[in-house]
Simulated assay, not measured.
Amino acid sequence: MAGRAAAYAFRGAFYSNFKTVDDVFFALYEQRNAEVQQRLEALAADTPSPEQARYSLESVVATMLRALLVDPQWVATRTSFAAQAQHRPEVASVLREHAEQLRWHLQPLLMHALELTGRRPLDSPEDFTRAVITAHLGAMTQSPLHDDPETVREAVVRGIVLGLTTDE
């Protein structure tokens, strides 16, 4: 009986904080964004200056992949909300805002990593970063279809980096 009372108390507290499933999702989404931002800050602090080292393309791709979350369940949830965004402007607005926060935090790390290889984006840094994020999410969305999804993700991101950058 005490367990049931605790469950009701938890449910009451839960519903007092979250009115809809969207509210729960966006709270989780903000938490995930904060985790990624912390990871990006740690990676940026760990990256050498251009005078210290010259990076290979493989090391740049590895840095990018370490920065991005690998969580197929999360990607499935996010993809579901992205599908809803097609018909729900309020969901689209929040997802766009969060995507831009991720881009804003990831972009300096990507640009610095490219600088270490002597490469630069063919287009704007913003568009390049969005393409890397899109490639990562696309590979993650397809991961259940592959025996080795990490190899696919690496190949997709490496292809984006090679295709959308040039030697300086």
Rank of each mutant, 00 (worst) to 15 (best):
L57F: 03
R120L: 09
A135I: 09
L162I: 14
L68A: 04
T151M: 10
I133Q: 12
V21H: 03
W104H: 10
P125T: 02
F10W: 13
E97K: 11
R88I: 09
L145A: 15
P108N: 00
W104A: 11
S49D: 15
L137S: 07
L116R: 06
A67D: 06
A62H: 08
L102Q: 14
L116M: 09
R4P: 00
T79L: 09
S124H: 01
L69E: 15
P144S: 03
S16T: 10
A62Y: 06
R88D: 14
L164P: 10
V36R: 06
V70E: 15
D127A: 12
S56C: 06
D46V: 00
R11V: 04
A85E: 05
R11E: 13
R130Y: 11
D71M: 01
A83Y: 09
Q37W: 00
Y15R: 11
Q86W: 07
S49H: 08
V61Y: 09
H146W: 14
R130V: 07
Y15M: 08
H98Q: 12
H136I: 07
R153V: 14
R39H: 06
T165G: 13
V152R: 08
L164A: 15
V70T: 11
V60M: 14
Y8E: 13
R4Y: 09
T166G: 11
M1P: 09
E150A: 14
G138H: 07
Q142H: 10
R120F: 04
F81E: 08
T165P: 15
V152K: 07
E97D: 13
P125W: 02
A67E: 11
P50C: 00
P149A: 01
T77G: 05
Y15S: 02
E41N: 11
F14K: 01
S124F: 01
E41M: 05
W74P: 13
L116E: 03
